[in-house]
Amino acid sequence: MQHTLSVLVENKSGVLARVAGLFSGRGFNIQSLTVCQTEDEAMSRMTIVVNGDDAVLEQVSKQLNKLIDVIKVHDLHPNTFVETQLILVNVNCSSKERSEILQIVDIFNGKIVDVTSKSIIFEATGSGEKIESLVNLLSPFGIREMARTGSVALHKGLQ
């Protein structure tokens, strides 16, 4: 089962290595990890997506809590949080194909960030599923390069 952990940590060098090391040292595989400073510059929030049964996740959360630089660990329950990902895609795009591609981009609320005579780069955000189907739709045109973030997530409402 997939779990999304929202982890508040000290914004210090070496913290990412501690968290990543904890996962690798215990053989837990990270699906995605995103990290950035929060509204308080002394803290960062990591959003970590991992697969594992509940017992494994309980152990992961406890181990994370044990790290001195980890301030708070939240295992986000389904339907109680919002989540989004960002993708940048560079797609082959001849003038013939341009309108078709723009249509797809439009459906996905994407934004064009660069256009050349042969290619187009745009960005889109959304759930993992949405990003996945966008990639599927674009593949036939030939994806030259893409960069994608992991999930960022926040608990809904007040806690």
Binding site: A55, E58, Q59, K62, Q63, N65, K66
Partner: peptide
């Protein structure tokens, strides 16, 4: 005293 030792 170590929560991670429990139910490990």
């Amino acid at each position: 005293i170590d929560p991670s030792a429990i139910s490990k």
